[in-house]
Design a protein around this nucleic acid. Structure first.
Lengths: 220, 220
DNA sequence: TTTAATATTTAGGCAAACCTAATTAATATT
DNA sequence: AATATTAATTAGGTTTGCCTAAATATTAAA
């Protein structure tokens, strides 16, 4: 059986691999999971014995197909629960992560099927992240950071690259929600400050730090 | 902090006390929780040290007010989740127990408040069991077993005294749902077999074993 | 009331998932 | 290339919640 701890390790390995593309190190896992490096070494040996990861001593771990499937499934559950919390229970997008961290470990395929149906088979979560299907497949993602846009571009805000409550609350405060249209009026090339028009009415200025974390799709 | 194990012990003690009215014995707890008697003795000492129960060696345990509040809160959560599973996710009343057993341990008062609101502040679960309020108070319950009725009584089916899937499925198969009207046509006094009319149309015969587990309320 | 049966507790252990401190391996610096 | 720094592993421990087997209580039966 796969315990919560195991699911959390696999999910962490998946996310760290996504970010860096490399083998996942003991120390990065220790930091993400908030446990000691010694604990990670221990645990990683156990899941390697179960063929959920491949482990090279002192180098790091990589998910096997089996491990990846479990990880992606947890991500699927997490994101479906987040959709539920926001769309059905009226939570804000910055309030759902911790609760979904618990709900994602509930074990019942039937439950997830019913939940998925109840939600209308959503393909993205409240932060714009893709929800994989039950086989672990993700839809194609053609988003890019607003930072990569230039003056004159008209795009749609479809996701965030940074999920901290801090950033999410900044966006809320600045009246920016998923689906909004962003028209790039100008870009200051000294510091990459963006001057934009939101939904054809409101003018805003966003720093580089902000625009690199706003994921957008070109309209049409 | 209260762990899942602790919550399950307190809930089991609460339920066993409900049933017998007496102090709860080690062996009854062991049987209900499917652990050894030795484990129960161990655990009971720990929760007694936390003042969640009073423990008299070789005699049994009783909940303190503190322990009872935790137990009732778990029951509240369990029943709210069952309402959700049946009313919103379209599960059948015999499919929800195991899933709710997991969901009841999710920790977030906020979540329960939102869920309660989402469900329209229900006062009973899909089996007719009362849902206590957040302070642990139950509404008055004026139900009685159909067995206590006599020929000529007109009552409403409002709950079950036996929650096994077996019994629930028997009722479903016999077309009996909460809220149905039951008119007692006659009672065989040799063996307490009841002949009834359901919802003013369908005639049925129920054994003593069945009618003692059907909880009803007199109409008007 | 003495014995037999049943229930409970004690003693000693185990697995999971964590820890710290000490050691070894890998990487970076002079 | 030798040394210092940083990262990873090993060794030994802890806590939680469970176990079995042996010892004591309690309750029931002869």
């Amino acid at each position: 059986m796969t315990s919560s701890a195991e699911e959390n390790y696999l999910k962490a390995i998946y996310k760290l691999h996504e970010k860096s593309g490399n083998m996942v190190t003991t120390s990065s896992l220790a930091e993400m999971l908030k446990v000691s490096a010694a604990s990670v070494t221990d645990f990683v040996k156990k899941i390697a014995a179960k063929k959920l990861v491949t482990y090279e001593k002192s180098k790091g771990v990589k998910l096997t197909d089996k491990g990846r499937l479990i990880a992606v499934n947890i991500i699927r559950k997490h994101r479906l629960w987040e959709v539920w919390l926001v769309n059905k229970l009226d939570f804000k997008w910055d309030e759902v992560h911790e609760i979904a961290e618990q709900l994602e470990h509930i074990i019942s395929d039937d439950l997830i099927d019913h939940l998925d149906k109840h939600l209308g088979y959503p393909t993205t979560d409240p932060h714009g992240d893709l929800i994989p299907d039950s086989k672990g497949k993700f839809a194609k993602n053609n988003s890019k950071p607003l930072l990569d846009c230039v003056a004159g571009d008209k795009v749609k805000f479809i996701g965030v690259a940074e999920h901290s409550n801090n950033f999410l609350q900044y966006l809320t405060k600045n009246n920016l929600s998923l689906g909004d249209e962003i028209f790039v009026e100008s870009v200051e090339d000294f510091d990459n400050t963006f001057s934009v028009k939101l939904n054809k009415k409101e003018n805003k200025v966003f720093s580089k730090e902000v625009v690199k974390n706003l994921l957008v799709a070109v309209i049409e």
